[in-house]
Computed example of a mutant assay.
Amino acid sequence: MTALALDIGGTKITAAVVGEDGRPGEPLTVPTPQSDVWQACEELLDAVSVGSDVDAIGIACAGPVDTVAGTVAPINIPEWKDGFALTDAVRTRFDSASVTLAMDGGCAALGEHRFGAAVGVDDVLSLVVSTGIGGGLVLGGRIVHGRSGNAGHIGHIVVPGSATPCTCGGLGCVETVSSGPSAVRWAQEQGWTGSTGADLAQSASDGDIVAITTLQRAGVALGQAIASAAALVDVNLVVVGGGFAQAGPPLWDPIQESAALHAKLEFLDGLEIVPAKLGAVGTLTGAAVLASGG
C-alpha cells in the first residue's frame, strides 16, 4: 500500500509518502502560486508518488473547507476563494485511491496528538499562528470535523477591542490582530520599518518598543481567544505552532498571562499552553495520519 499526505497552505504546498508508522517521509515543497494551484498540487503529488500505485491520500487544506462536498475555499488562496472541488480533482488523478480531506488546523491537532506535544492527551486544541490563524480539535482521541469540516477554526473568534475588517468579511477576528501579516501591518502603521514577522521578532529581541508593543498586543488577543475556546470545548491542553509563534517570549509571555487572566472557571485549572513539537511538518503529519486511516 502507498499512501500520500498533502498539505496546502497560503504560503506553501507540501507532499510526502506516508511511512508504515503513519508519519510522512521526506517531504517535497513548492511555494503556493497565485494561479494554477491545482496544477502545482498535481505535479507535487506525481513527483512524490513516481513509480507507485497510490491507495490512499490524506489532504490538509487551509480553510474554510467543506468535507462533505469535498470542496475548499481558503481565504489565503485567492484563486480558490470562491470554491474548488479538491477531492474530485484528486480522485480524477488517482482514481483508485481513497481520499480524505480535513482542515489544516484539525490535521495539526491530529499530528500533535499522535506524535507531538499532545501524545497521551485525548482532548486538545491546536493553533497554527502564521499567515493566518488556524485551529483544530481532537476530543476523545479523535479529530473533530464539525458539520462542514471547520470545527476549531479559532482564527475567527472575535476578540475585545478590535473592529478591524477581516478577510472573512467579519470584524475583529483574532486573525486581524495576531497573525504574522496583521501584526506586521499594525507595527508599520506605528512607524516600524521592518517587513516580516521574523523581522518583528528580531526587533522585539533588540528592544524596539513598537515591536514589543505589537507582539504584546498579538499575544493578549491570542490568550483571550484561547481562554474562550478552552472554556467552550473543555480542554486543558492547547498546542500552538506556526511560523509567527516562533517570536519568543515577547509573544508567548502575553499569551500565557492573558489566558490565565481570563480562564478562571474551575474546570480550566491547570490549562497548559505549549509549543508544538512537530514544527513545519505538523500539519503534513496529521494528513499522513488521515491517509493511514487514523
Rank of each mutant, 00 (worst) to 15 (best):
Ser35Ala: 09
Pro27Cys: 03
Asp55Val: 13
Gly63His: 04
Asp66Ala: 03
Gly9Ile: 03
Val65Trp: 02
Val17Ile: 12
Leu28Arg: 03
Gly9Val: 07
Val54Asp: 03
Pro33Cys: 07
Asp53Cys: 13
Pro24Cys: 05
Trp38Met: 00
Val48Ala: 11
Val50Lys: 09
Ala47Asp: 05
Ser52Pro: 08
Asp21Ala: 13
Val50Met: 12
Val54Glu: 15
Gly9Trp: 08
Ala60Gly: 12
Arg23Ala: 10
Asp21Gly: 05
Val65Gln: 09
Pro33Phe: 04
Ser49Phe: 02
Pro31Phe: 02
Thr32Gly: 01
Thr29Glu: 15
Pro64Trp: 03
Thr32Pro: 09
Leu28Pro: 03
Ser35Gln: 02
Ile8Asp: 13
Leu28Gln: 04
Gly22Asn: 04
Ala56Ile: 00
Asp36Ile: 07
Val54Cys: 14
Asp66His: 11
Leu28Asp: 02
Cys41Gly: 12
Val50Ser: 08
Leu45Gly: 11
Val65Asn: 08
Leu28Val: 00
Thr11Trp: 04
Glu42Ile: 11
Val37Cys: 06
Glu42Ser: 12
Pro33Glu: 01
Gly10Ser: 00
Asp53Leu: 15
Ala62Asn: 09
Gln34Asp: 08
Ile57Gly: 11
Gly22Ala: 07
Thr14Phe: 11
Ala60Ile: 13
Ser49Leu: 12
Glu42His: 13
Val18His: 06
Ser52Gly: 14
Ala62Glu: 12
Gly25Leu: 06
Pro64Val: 05
Gln39Arg: 12
Arg23His: 02
Asp7Ala: 00
Asp55Leu: 08
Pro27Tyr: 01
Asp7Thr: 00
Gly9Phe: 07
Leu44Tyr: 10
Ser52Glu: 11
Val37Arg: 00
Ile8Cys: 06
Val48Cys: 02
Thr14Glu: 12
Gly22Val: 10
Gly19Thr: 09
Leu28Ile: 04
Asp7Gly: 01
Pro64Asn: 08
Thr32Leu: 15
Gly22Ser: 13
Asp46Asn: 10
Asp53Ser: 09
Pro24Ile: 07
Glu26Tyr: 07
Asp66Trp: 05
Glu20Lys: 07
Ala62Arg: 01
Leu44Cys: 14
Ser35Arg: 04
Ala47Pro: 04
Trp38Lys: 07
Asp36Lys: 11
Pro33Lys: 02
Asp36Met: 05
Cys41Thr: 14
Ile57Trp: 08
Ile8Leu: 10
Pro31Lys: 08
Glu20Ala: 00
Ser35Lys: 07
Ala40Phe: 00
Ile59Gln: 02
Val50Asn: 13
Thr11Gln: 14
Cys61Ala: 03
Asp36Gln: 09
Ala40Asn: 07
Thr14Lys: 06
Ile13Glu: 01
Ser35Phe: 05
Val65Tyr: 08
Gly19Gln: 15
Thr32Ile: 10
Asp21Gln: 02
Asp46Leu: 15
Leu28Lys: 06
Ala56Thr: 08
Cys61His: 03
Val54Phe: 10
Val54Met: 11
Pro33Gln: 11
Cys61Thr: 15
Asp7Trp: 00
Leu45Gln: 07
Ile13Asn: 12
Gln34Gly: 14
Pro27Ala: 12
Arg23Asp: 04
Ser52Ile: 09
Cys61Asn: 09
Leu44Ile: 11
Gly25Cys: 06
Ala56Cys: 15
Gln39Gly: 13
